[in-house]
């Protein structure tokens, strides 16, 4: 015991105890943790396979414009045809592919939203009556989701970039609607209109409508984060994740809100109001005037 007491007072004793404790914990953890080595090896193999699938999808659908290594391509005059995808991140891939903008159909002022190609279409109908049909649809949908995830993983593996936001960050019922309205009017309405009906931009470009239910909260978030096409980037210092969620809440809750005054007339303001005023209002009154003047009194009493 004297020897131990003596060692206890040496300057290195404390370090020795910490080391011993770490070693003991390590040994115990190794004993308890289940098959770590093999599992890791398996998931690495799976990830490599997924990446390979992602790369194959990329080569098949994207590489013709974005280049075999996603480095982007230029035409003979050095004008870019398609941008490099190094560092654009998973959020950008998810936005472009899930809205059907990519793979693009044809070059134009702007790539329109369309139904995604079957390999990436995660919005397909699955509620079939027949079990076989339903199963096939569900399988196809699961495959599409996996394809999209693999493609995202492949592009992120090339150079990082912003990732897909978690569902909790885009939940439209959690944000501050009043704040979102304010932020939307200051930052977004000048292109997308007060209520997100969209609007025209220069040179044939346009801000797409956000008022239809196929624009998902995740897509809104990703658009703000990555600034697709004509849209500027609103990174997390310009609009914090809370701000983004507020804007999403404003958009989704506003588009779901009924119009208390009757038909919303497209919610685009005085242009449609004027049209209705002239065509419906004045039209009905002109018809009434014609009807009234067509009524002739049969006989008038003579004085």
């Amino acid at each position: 015991m004297r020897r131990i007491t003596a060692w206890r007072r040496r300057p290195w004793a404390g370090y020795a105890v910490v080391l011993a404790a770490l070693a003991a914990i390590g040994v115990i953890y190794a004993g308890f943790s289940p098959q770590t080595g093999r599992a890791e090896a398996e998931s690495t193999a799976q990830a490599a396979q997924d990446l390979k699938n992602g790369q194959q999808l990329f080569n098949k659908n994207c590489a013709s414009c974005h280049g075999l290594n996603a480095e982007g391509t230029k035409d003979a005059k050095g004008k870019p045809i398609a941008p490099s995808l190094l560092g654009v991140g998973a959020a950008s891939v998810d936005f472009q592919v899930s809205t059907g903008r990519m793979p693009a159909m044809s070059p134009g002022a702007q790539f329109p939203r369309k139904t995604p190609i079957p390999a990436f279409n995660t919005e397909i109908k699955t509620d079939y009556e027949e079990p076989a049909k339903r199963k096939a649809a569900e399988q196809q949908k699961a495959q599409a989701e996996k394809n999209l995830a693999d493609l995202r993983a492949y592009i992120s593996s090339l150079g990082g970039g912003p990732g897909v936001p978690p569902a909790s960050a885009t939940d439209p019922s959690k944000g501050d609607v009043a704040l979102g309205g304010k932020l939307f009017r200051t930052n977004c309405a000048q292109c997308h209109n007060f209520t997100g009906q969209g609007g025209a931009l220069t040179g044939g470009k346009y801000a797409p409508p956000l008022s239809k239910s196929d624009v998902t909260p995740t897509q809104m978030y990703e658009a703000m984060l990555t600034g697709p096409q004509a849209m500027p980037v609103f990174n997390d210092t310009t609009l914090t994740p809370q701000d983004k969620q507020a804007i999403i809440s404003y958009l989704v809750q506003t588009r779901e809100q009924p119009n208390p005054g009757g038909n919303g007339l497209g919610r685009i303001g005085p242009v449609s109001e004027g049209l209705v005023g002239w065509l419906v209002g004045l039209g009905l009154l002109v018809m009434a005037a014609m009807w009234i003047t067509a009524k002739k009194p049969k006989k008038l009493k003579k004085s």
Partner: peptide, 25 residues
Amino acid sequence: AQINPIWLFGPYDPGAISAGSQPDW
């Protein structure tokens, strides 16, 4: 027919503007 839904337009803020801002006809 809903006309001039000011609650959708929001309060005036000199720093904000909307696409499709038109006056009455």
